[in-house]
């Protein structure tokens, strides 16, 4: 028996923690025309982030000036961050060629994640796994295509499964593990990492917000007051923590995309 359970039982009615139903969204206009049924809240969130990223990039880089002003300042800081922290360490001298892709990926995922703490919207885009899968699939297909193009079909898989300079006997164990981790687990973890963090973070926030609302407004009792205050405080703290996690996940996704691409361009070792 959990503590909220006992406290709520005194005044009748039970506290229900939010669950997976948080992510079930019907059409945005129920009873609207049939051709508009695809427009649900997650789709709206992703469309909005596309528009925001495009508008920001347009404002920042449309007419670049030697002395940056306004949005160009922010844009240049963001671009330099992606180049110095993500592209250069992984891709080296190839980084300038891949910057458009990496910058767009980073900005898009960051904005989509931050939608989770924007009031009213409050739903991170990748908390539906479909969006995370598409992003990871793009990187995965690109990785395999580039690997076969630059190292040859046989050479690519040979470089993955048989990294040189190891005792012969070790390859019996190493080759299947390397194949599994590169070809099968990579796209899986790449997409599920983004999805799981957003999903769990959203449920966490919803849980503490529900605790605060239930014990302070809906069923206000002297015993439950303390729990409600804790729930409210935790909502505020966790919102800050979520913003950190959301930025971190966008960063990690892009770093991994960059290093997967780098591994396909040049064989390691």
């Amino acid at each position: 028996m959990s503590a909220p359970h006992i406290l709520a039982a005194e005044s009748g009615g039970e506290f229900h923690a939010p669950g997976v139903e948080l992510f079930d969204w019907g059409p945005l206009f129920p009873g609207g025309p049939a051709w508009l049924e695809w427009l649900t809240k997650p789709v709206l969130v992703v469309l909005l982030s596309v528009i925001i990223v495009c508008a920001f990039a347009w404002a920042a880089f449309r007419k670049p000036k030697l002395v940056p002003r306004g949005a160009q300042n922010v844009g240049e800081v963001a671009y330099l961050f992606v180049r110095e922290q993500i592209a250069r360490p992984a891709l080296g001298k190839d980084s300038d060629r891949w910057m458009p892709f990496l910058f767009a990926t980073f900005a898009f995922i960051l904005v989509m994640n931050l939608m989770g703490v924007v009031p009213v919207l409050q739903l991170p885009g990748p908390s539906h796994i479909a969006f995370a899968i598409v992003l990871a699939a793009v990187v995965y297909v690109m990785m395999i295509f580039l690997g076969i193009k630059h190292q040859g079909l046989v050479g690519y898989f040979k470089n993955i499964m048989f990294p040189p300079g190891l005792p012969k006997l070790l390859y019996v164990v190493l080759a299947p593990i390397e194949f599994l981790s590169t070809i099968i687990l990579r796209p899986f973890t790449h997409s599920v990492r983004l999805f799981a963090n957003m999903f769990a973070g959203h449920i966490l926030l919803a849980f503490f917000a529900t605790v605060g609302y239930w014990f302070l407004i809906e069923k206000l009792t002297p015993a439950g007051f303390g729990v409600g205050v804790v729930g409210l405080l935790m909502t505020i703290i966790m919102t800050g923590f979520e913003m950190f996690i959301q930025a971190l996940q966008a960063f990690i996704f892009t770093v991994l995309a960059a290093s997967y691409i780098a591994g396909s361009l040049h064989a390691e070792h």
């Binding site: 899986f188 973890t189 770093v255 991994l256 290093s259």
Partner: peptide
Amino acid sequence: MLLGFAVTEALALI
């Protein structure tokens, strides 16, 4: 560090 992190976290994600 991040590459090793990606491989290790695979188990938790599964």
